[in-house]
């Protein structure tokens, strides 16, 4: 009796398995990449699912770099990146033609806990940042803050946020010194750790920093002038670490994928962008 049952179960599984191998139902859109762009796309996906029954799957494990590599290897149909596609990327994925679709604006800020900010750490110059990154400056009192060791939480090198930071501070990615720091991965992790670690400093999306009262974005001193990461300076690109938020594709878009993009460009989509604290790209209205 048991063997009959077992054998029939096995048969059932085989049939189902083979059946699903053959029958490829309209697959969902796979999107992988930046944890900065992620929330926007997830929200958009929720809307599209309920309005147009389009299935979208989003994953932010690994950040922008994983977005590009998943796109290149065909695992995903869209990559999300929070930086520009660099020369190294183009070389690495030489056989892939990337098409970028701009869906929002953001910037990278150097972020400290509110406590540290209140204790006097309000801005840094690019050269000071370099010294901190290269571990030449190790205490906050050297920049007018309290007597507290500077703990730099570096974003994983694969993250878009990290690349934007590195380009702004060092000019070229290649010139960035290979220093080991404590690493954080997603925006969520960076924010959590900077709140809970005394003396911490990390790179974080400005939108995320603004939304949480427990962290504060530092201003940047560029040529002596204090530039705050606010909308005006980000749009004008005066703030050195401004960045574009992209969805990237490598093949011609199908109908569902077009729908997603159109939605993101539309007012409703841009409202989502704004809700999360990023800057809109269509200059319609707020």
């Amino acid at each position: 009796m048991f063997t009959k049952l077992f054998k029939s179960l096995l048969l059932l599984v085989l049939v189902l398995g083979l059946g699903s191998l053959v029958a490829q139902v309209d697959a969902s859109i796979k999107i992988q990449g930046s944890s900065t762009v992620g929330p926007i796309v997830v929200k958009a996906a929720e809307v599209l699912k309920s309005n147009k029954d389009i299935d979208i799957v989003v994953d932010t494990f690994g950040g922008s770099a994983t977005g590009l590599s998943s796109l290149a290897s065909g695992i995903a149909q869209f990559g999300m990146i929070s930086k520009e596609i660099s020369q190294e990327d183009k070389k690495k994925y030489s056989n892939v033609h990337f098409t970028t679709h701009l869906i929002g604006l953001d910037a990278v800020a150097l972020v400290v806990s509110k406590k540290l900010y209140d204790q006097g750490v309000k801005s840094l110059s690019l050269s000071q940042i370099r010294e901190i990154y290269e571990k030449k400056m190790t205490n906050w009192k050297e920049v007018g803050g309290p007597d507290q060791k500077i703990i730099f939480l570096n974003k994983e090198p694969g993250r878009g946020t990290w690349e934007v930071f590195a380009k702004a501070v060092y000019g070229k990615l290649k010139r960035t010194p290979l220093v080991s720091h404590l690493e954080v991965g997603s925006n969520e992790e960076a924010k959590s750790k900077v709140i809970s670690t005394p003396g911490a400093l990390t790179q974080l999306s400005v939108a995320w920093a603004e939304k949480d009262p427990r962290v504060k974005a530092l201003g940047l001193l560029v040529d002596g002038k204090l530039i705050l990461p606010d909308e005006k300076h980000i749009r004008s690109k005066e703030y050195p670490m401004s960045r574009n938020l992209y969805l990237v594709s490598s093949k011609p878009l199908n109908k569902d994928q077009r729908e997603l993009l159109n939605f993101l460009y539309s007012n409703a989509g841009q409202n989502i962008v704004g809700d999360y604290g990023y800057l809109r790209v269509s200059k319609d209205k707020n």
Binding site: S20, L21, V25, A27, S28, A45, D55, V57, D59, T60
Partner: peptide
């Protein structure tokens, strides 16, 4: 695994 978006699978490939 992915974090968001996957429901019940509809096939084998590309079905997290």
């Amino acid at each position: 695994c992915v974090f968001y978006g996957a429901g019940l699978p509809t096939g084998i490939k590309d079905n997290p």
